[in-house]
Design a protein around this nucleic acid. Structure first.
Lengths: 352, 352
DNA sequence: TCATCTTGCGCAATCGATGGTGCTTAAGCT
DNA sequence: AGCTTAAGCACCATCGATTGCGCAAGATGA
């Protein structure tokens, strides 16, 4: 009657016992119809194939009863669409990326797709390797979050016909959704300056910027905002007070330690370019100038609940993840060929 | 000559232009050999198939040149092994689960497999739906981290012949790797008591436990450790001082607020059953008893860097993620049918 | 009554990789 | 020389779902 059964001479019971999935052929057998009809009913294309509602219902019933779930490998192989969306992101060690991953998964699942997130530790080679692997699995699209080389990835994917979107860090090949880093940094710096001024501190000489990477678009935009806010406060930015030492906690820690040692005092206000960098600064202060934790003004680009409680005087920029994801899924949902534009979302400044 | 080419009459250039993957058939054409030979060479099984090294080399060369990457859908469909390992976990909002996800991905990738992690928000239905989806994609194995119903999931997977492992929360159907929650809680409580005693505090009446779920194995083990440490300190555990109100920050916040309101004072020492619950407690204290943040003794089951700096008097239990993952991958790597045993890993108590 | 639609569905090729089976040709042995 | 054995590959069915095409039976119209 039917190829599997005939060829391998196995009964449905035998199949079940061998722990395999129920297939459309099994259902076709049971329903006394053909696999193509079953397939059409179960993937929803049955109306176009002029299959009667009565038959569709009965097949659906049998399928439910047998606990059918489509074999996505087979479906993907045939249809050339895997219904998976990949996402790479740098780390799971802060609330920003955590929120992105979580929200991404919710939204993707809401669209009946399978999210495939993977953290690539800010390592360009790992990013590429991961993307290649995702391509091997035929993902329908890839979201590159905070990628070190978004354009390289975009080109690789483009060659396979897989669209990409950049998140957090912009690229020039694919569309990007990022925070308005200039504005966020400007407002954060301005808030620090306003508070410092109100407190009667002499911030002009020692206002410090710590963390980030020189090659990183976000870092340079934030530095630009930092400097502009200083200029607008009628002071002069000081190059030695900008420590672009990487994001990792141990790097900001040692850069900050060296700076304090060199200048001989703890700055009155510090703009830290990520929560993970803040970790390094705070760790060093906790060990060497514990009291400074309560007196220093902190500005953190990215928000963390405990950081917020930790310091009396912490201002944070909280990036608007829901808004960013909305923008991103607007692009994903519109099936238009997306332009390589950069969409900026205003982040939120959280006051001390 | 070859089926694809013949049937569809398309050249290699046409294929490339249509942005499709290079297949073993394309390579076979180029190498003037058969697809099965190419396949065997490229998947490494060529020695068993008695293919000469010379031919293998030349095929490998051509494949590299053409940028071949196997179509994993096809491979999975045929071989019934997808080379994907799924992992569900509750949240990305704390360092513990973040570290688990990160380490999991590293280890899985080191084995040439594809990690598929997904956060299921402590929602039983979402857990099951996600697992079903993963099964549809034929994952080779599923790791259930902090699952609310690990046995239900294990049985579902077992029916499909997919092995599972429980992490963080134990089950009875599949093997489990968890922290020794009793010991961790016991030692954490003992540390709190020792410090409280040294400080001359009257902790016997108000030592508090906040957070977790009654149905949750970890919570009950931690409570057991908490009580035992109190007993061993020659005091009596007080049921009203154990608030099992869920993990979420807003739940611990209101439970804690109600407790303080009812008793009329902030406890001298508080055992909080997760960093996210600590967030709620600290948030309320910050708003209503800011000074208590510096005087109260905190014990946190789970570690967070900023929480550690925030409070002068915070003890934490830091679960030993690397050790746990080692145990887990020992099970995964041994192809033996794993027994449903529970492996406990000693966590680390971090002092204030 | 016969030709033409329309409805309802089955057939079979196909996606790319895998692996059992079997066919050549060359080498080894008596 | 004749026969066995092994080396080196090619052929083809198969995994499960999708989809263009075609066939049969009933409905409609002239």
């Amino acid at each position: 009657m039917e190829r599997h059964r005939l060829v391998k001479g196995e009964s449905f019971v035998a199949r079940a016992a061998s722990r395999k999935q129920v297939t459309i052929y099994d259902i076709a057998d049971r329903a006394g119809t053909s696999a193509s009809t079953v397939g059409a009913v179960l993937n929803g294309s049955w109306r176009n194939r002029r299959i009667s509602a009565k038959r569709a219902n009965s097949i659906q019933l049998i399928a439910d009863e047998m606990g059918y779930a489509p074999n996505m490998q087979a479906r993907a192989l045939r249809s050339d669409r895997s219904r998976m969306i990949g996402m790479i992101l740098p780390m799971y060690d802060n609330r920003y990326f955590g929120a992105i991953a979580e929200r991404f998964e919710v939204e993707v699942r809401a669209r009946g797709l399978l999210p495939m997130t993977s953290c690539t530790r800010r390592d360009p080679d790992l990013e590429l390797a991961t993307v290649r692997q995702m391509l091997s699995y035929n993902v329908d699209r890839i979201v590159c979050t905070g990628a070190t080389d978004p354009d390289g990835i975009a080109r690789l994917c483009e060659a396979q016909g897989v669209p990409t979107i950049n998140l957090d860090l912009p690229g020039s090949v694919a569309p990007s959704v990022i925070s308005d880093n200039f504005s966020g940094a400007y407002r954060l710096t301005a808030a620090l300056i306003a508070r410092a001024t109100a407190d009667g501190r002499q911030w002009q000489e020692d206002l410090l910027f710590v963390g980030g990477r020189p090659s990183d678009h976000n870092t340079s935009e934030r530095i630009r905002g930092f400097r502009q806010a200083i200029l607008d406060a009628k002071a002069a930015p000081i190059d030695e007070n900008i420590l672009v030492c990487g994001y990792a906690a141990h790097k900001s820690r040692s850069a900050f330690a060296a700076h304090v040692t060199a200048t001989g005092h703890v700055p009155s206000a510090i703009f830290v370019n990520s929560t993970i960098s803040l970790e390094g600064v705070v760790d060093w202060l906790g060990q060497h100038h514990r009291d400074a934790l309560d007196t220093t003004l902190f500005g953190s680009f990215d928000w963390d609940p405990f950081a917020q409680y930790m310091a009396q005087n912490l201002f944070s920029v909280r990036q608007d993840v829901p808004a960013m994801m909305d923008e991103m899924f607007k692009i994903i949902d519109s099936d238009l060929q997306p332009k390589a534009e950069v969409i900026q979302v205003e982040p939120i400044v959280v006051s001390a």
